[in-house]
Simulated scan of single mutants.
Amino acid sequence: MRKLIIASMAAAAFSLAACSEKAQQETSEAGAAVADDAAAAGDAVAEGAAEAGDTVAAGAADAADATAAAAKDAGNAVEGTVKAAGDAADNAGDKIAEETKKAEANDKK
């Protein structure tokens, strides 16, 4: 009887050991799969962040170009306005000189 109990316990221990090895293998495989999934998710996040960064950089470059073009256009408009004001002042000066000559000529008569 004693031998039967010892043999049964040995068989049970062997079964548990075999089950444990199988469970360990499955756990190891599941852990590897989870690690692979986490790495793939990390890669996807990094790629998305890089694409977002590229999009922001391109948008900033476009905005800078548009701002520079607007500043150039504004500068040209100011330059044109100043030139027109200078021309108007010259014409007014010429007109004043002309009218002054006429007035002096009338005074002499």
Rank of each mutant, 00 (worst) to 15 (best):
Gly93Trp: 04
Asp90Ile: 14
Ala105Ile: 09
Val78Ala: 15
Arg2Met: 08
Ala89Lys: 03
Gly59Pro: 03
Ala85Phe: 11
Ser20Val: 05
Val56Thr: 06
Gly86Met: 15
Asp43Cys: 05
Glu99Gln: 10
Ala32Glu: 12
Asp107Val: 06
Thr81Glu: 15
Ala18Pro: 01
Glu104Ser: 12
Asp90Phe: 12
Val56Gly: 04
Gln25His: 11
Ile96Pro: 06
Ala88His: 04
Asp73Ser: 03
Ala57Val: 05
Ala74Leu: 09
Arg2Asp: 14
Asp107Gln: 06
Ala18Gln: 02
Ala74Lys: 09
Asp94Phe: 02
Ala7Ser: 11
Ala38Thr: 14
Lys3Glu: 13
Gly53Val: 06
Ala89Ile: 06
Gly75Ser: 07
Gly75Leu: 03
Ala69Asp: 14
Glu98Cys: 00
Ala58Met: 00
Ala71Gly: 01
Asp37Val: 13
Glu104Gln: 13
Ala50Val: 04
Ala30Val: 11
Asp87Pro: 00
Thr55Tyr: 07
Ala69Cys: 00
Ala38Cys: 06
Glu21Trp: 12
Met9Phe: 07
Asp90Lys: 13
Ala10Asp: 13
Gly31Phe: 10
Ala52Trp: 00
Ala84Leu: 08
Ala97Gly: 10
Ala89Trp: 02
Arg2Leu: 09
Ala41Met: 10
Ala71Thr: 01
Ala52Cys: 01
Ala30Pro: 04
Ala92Cys: 01
Asp62Cys: 00
Lys72Trp: 05
Asp54Asn: 06
Glu29Ile: 12
Asp73Asn: 04
Ala105Glu: 15
Ala103Cys: 03
Val56Met: 04
Lys101Met: 02
Ala50Arg: 07
Glu26Asp: 15
Ala10Glu: 14
Ala103Lys: 08
Ala10Gly: 08
Glu26Lys: 15
Ala30Arg: 11
Val34Lys: 04
Val45His: 08
Gln25Tyr: 13
Gln24Lys: 08
Lys108Val: 12
Ala66His: 01
Ala63Asn: 05
Thr27Lys: 13
Gln24Pro: 02
Ala89Cys: 00
Ala35Arg: 12
Ala103Pro: 04
Ala68Val: 07
Ser8Trp: 06
Ala23Ile: 14
Ala88Lys: 07
Ala39Gly: 00
Thr100Glu: 04
Ala18Trp: 05
Gly42Asn: 14
Ala38Asn: 11
Phe14Val: 13
Ala35Cys: 08
Lys72Ala: 15
Glu21Val: 13
Val82Gly: 04
Gly75Lys: 02
Ala57Asp: 09
Ala57Lys: 05
Glu29Phe: 09
Glu29Tyr: 11
Glu29Gln: 14
Lys108Trp: 09
Gly53Phe: 06
Lys83Asp: 15
Asp87Lys: 04
Asp37Lys: 12
Asp54Trp: 01
Ala66Arg: 03
Ala30Met: 12
Ala57Pro: 01
Asp36Asn: 13
Ala89Glu: 08
Ala88Gln: 06
Ala50Asn: 04
Ala105Cys: 06
Ala84Lys: 08
Ala39Phe: 00
Lys108Leu: 12
Gly80Leu: 07
Ala39Cys: 01
Ile6Met: 00
Ala57Leu: 05
Asp90His: 11
Cys19Leu: 15
Gly86Arg: 07
Asp73Thr: 02
Glu99Ser: 09
Asp90Tyr: 11
Lys72Tyr: 08
Ala18Ser: 08
Asp87Cys: 00
Ala13Asn: 10
Glu98Val: 01
Ala63Asp: 13
Gly80Thr: 10
Asp87Gly: 02
Ala66Val: 03
Ile96Ser: 11
Ala92Trp: 00
Gly53Ile: 06
Ala74Asp: 12
Ala89Asp: 06
